[in-house]
Design a protein around this nucleic acid. Sequence first.
DNA 1: AAGGCGGGGGT
DNA 2: ACCCCAGCCTT
Length: 345
Amino acid sequence: MSFSQEILQWYHKNKRELPWRNTIEPYNIWLSEIILQQTRVVQGIPYYLKFLDAFPTVRHLAKAPEEKILKLWQGLGYYSRARNLHATAKMVVNEHNGTFPNTYVGLKSLKGVGDYTASAIASICFNIPEPVVDGNVYRVLARYFGVGIPINSSEGIKHFKELARKVMNEEQIRDYNQGIMEFGAIQCAPKKPYCMLCPLQESCVALKDNKVDVLPIKLNKTKTRRRYFNYLVFLDGQKNTLLEQRKGKGIWQNLYQFPLLESEKELQVEEFEQILMEENRLPRYRSFSMYNETPIVHKLSHQHLYTRFWIVETKKLLPDGISWEQIMEFPVPVLIADFIQTFKI
DNA sequence: AAGGCGGGGGT
DNA sequence: ACCCCAGCCTT
C-alpha cells in the first residue's frame, strides 16, 4: 500500500472527534486554523467553541470591537492572530460580500493566512489538491523518507513542500491532509513515537537507520533576553486604578496593563522611588509599597520578564480611574490577569 | 534569511 | 533548561 493510503487508513481508524471536524464551512475552518497556529489542539478547542458562540458568522465577527475579540483571545498568545482575524473578517464582509475566497491564491491574500493555512482551508473546504506542511508534516516526512535537510532553511521549506505534493492523495486531499497531521501529532510524535506499532514501520527510513530521535533537523536556537518590568498599581479612595494600552511594535500589542516602568536591572525601593520622582510619575500618595519581594518570572519564547508590582495608594481620586470590577473587561496579558486574580484589595 | 511574536505542556 | 505546538509577518 502506498504512503498516502496508509495515512488515510490510519486516519480513519484513529482520528479524534474535534469540533471543527463536523463541518467544511469556510468561516469555521478558517477560525479553527488561525486558532491552531503554533497552538496545541487541546488548548485551542475551548477558544474555538467560545468564538463560535460569540460570533456565529463572519459578519458577527466583523462588526465586533477589536477589544472584545482580544478579550476572548486572552491567554492564547500571539495576539497578532486576533488582530488579523478581525481585519480579515472585515475584508471578507466588505470586499467579498461575506463569502470566503475559494482558491489557494485568494485565501493566501487574507491577513494572517500564509502558505499552510491557505492550503488547509483550500483542501478541507473546497477539496483543492494542495498539500499542507505544518510541524507535524515536517516530522512525518523527514522521518519516513529520511530527509536531513533542516526544516527551517529556505531549501528545507521548498523541499518538504515539493515532497509533500509528490506523495499526497489528490482524490481524498481533505482527509489526507488532516490525516498526515493527525498521524504526526499522535503516532509519529516528537518524543517517544510509537514506532513498534506503526503501520509504516516496514518502510520508514529513520526507523531503519536509527535516526528517529534526530529527525527532523531544525536550526536556530532562539536566545532569550531578560527584561525588568515594574508595574504601578494605583489605588485611590474609591478603589479605582489605572490601565494603559500597549502600543508600538513589541509584545502584547493593543493589550492593556498597569502603568509600566521598565528598567535595565532589578531596582531597590529607594532607587525606584527616585526614578519615579525624577520622571514625575508619582502623584501624592498615602502609601507606596512593593507587592512582591521576589520578582515574578514570566517566560515567553524569547523573553524572560522579571516583574515587580508596586502598590500606590493615592491621596486624590485618579482622573480616568477604572474600578476594580471594570478591569476584568479589558484584554490583558496572562501576567497581568494572574496578578489581578491573586491581588486582594 | 533572520528575528519577533505567547502561553502551556512534556521531558 | 530545552523542545514543541494544524505559522505568519516584518525587516
